[in-house]
Write a protein that binds this DNA or RNA. Structure first.
Lengths: 107, 107
DNA sequence: GCTTCTGCTTTCCCGGCAGGAAACCCTCGG
DNA sequence: CCGAGGGTTTCCTGCCGGGAAAGCAGAAGC
C-alpha cells in the first residue's frame, strides 16, 4: 500500500458521520441530520452541498403538514464511497494489526 | 453514538498513515518515513512535531556510518490512540452495516 | 578549529477549507 | 400581499497543511 489515498470529501469528520448516519435509512430530514450531527444550518448545508457535488447525496425538497422539509438521501455512489473508504481504513488497520491491543496478530 | 468525535491529530490522513506505518516496527528512519509517505522534509517534520506534541511519537537522534539519522518511534500512547481511532471507525462501520455491499441490512 | 556537507527544523507565505452570523430566497398559510 | 418557517449563500475569520528557503547542529575532511 504505497498510497492508501483517502477520499478527502468523505474523510472529513462531519461528512463521514453524516454519510454513516444516512446509510441505514432511505432518507433523513434536514433538521434531523442537523441535530444529530450538532451542526448549524449553514454548516450542514455546505457539507451537503459538497457531498451532493460528488454525487454522494441528493436532496429532495417537499412539503408536509404545510411545512417545507428537505430530505437527504445517500446515493448508491455515496454508499459505495463510504464503504470503500471504511474498507480502506480497515485494510490499513488489519495490515497493521491494530485490533485493539496489538498482540500476536502481527500479520 | 451521539458524537464519535474523532481524534483530529490522528485523523489527519498523513498522520494516520504515518502512525500505521510505524506500528509494526520498533522504529523507522526519518528518511524512510518521508519516502514512504511521499512527503517533503518540512511537511514530515511538522507532522512528527504534532504527533510528538501529543506524545504519540518520539524522535531518537543518533549517528550511523558517520551520518546522523533520526529514528521515529510510535509510543504506547500513539498505538493506543491509533487503535482507539480505528476501533471507533470500525464501530461506526459496524453499526452502519457498511460491510461492503449494503444488503438487506436496512436496520 | 574551521569549513563543508548532510539531515532535520523553522520561518515565511500562501491557498483552501470549515464555521458562525447574517442577509437572502422561496414556499406555505393566513 | 404579508409574515413565518426552512434552507442557502455571502462575508469574513481562523486554522491548518504545503512548498521554498533560510537556519542549525553534528560529523567528516582538511
Amino acid at each position: 500500500m504505497p498510497h492508501p489515498v483517502f477520499d478527502e470529501v468523505i474523510h472529513e469528520p462531519h461528512r463521514l458521520r453524516i454519510c454513516a448516519y444516512l446509510v441505514p435509512v432511505a432518507g433523513r430530514e434536514f433538521s434531523d441530520v442537523r441535530d444529530a450531527m450538532d451542526l448549524s444550518d449553514s454548516a450542514l448545508s455546505k457539507h451537503l452541498k459538497a457531498l451532493s457535488a460528488c454525487g454522494y447525496t441528493t436532496l429532495e425538497r417537499g412539503v408536509r403538514d404545510g411545512r417545507q422539509l428537505t430530505t437527504v438521501h445517500l446515493t448508491a455512489a455515496g454508499r459505495e464511497a463510504l464503504c470503500g473508504h471504511v474498507a480502506e481504513l480497515q485494510r490499513m488497520a488489519r495490515i497493521v494489526g491494530t485490533d485493539r491491543r496489538v498482540g500476536p496478530r502481527t500479520r
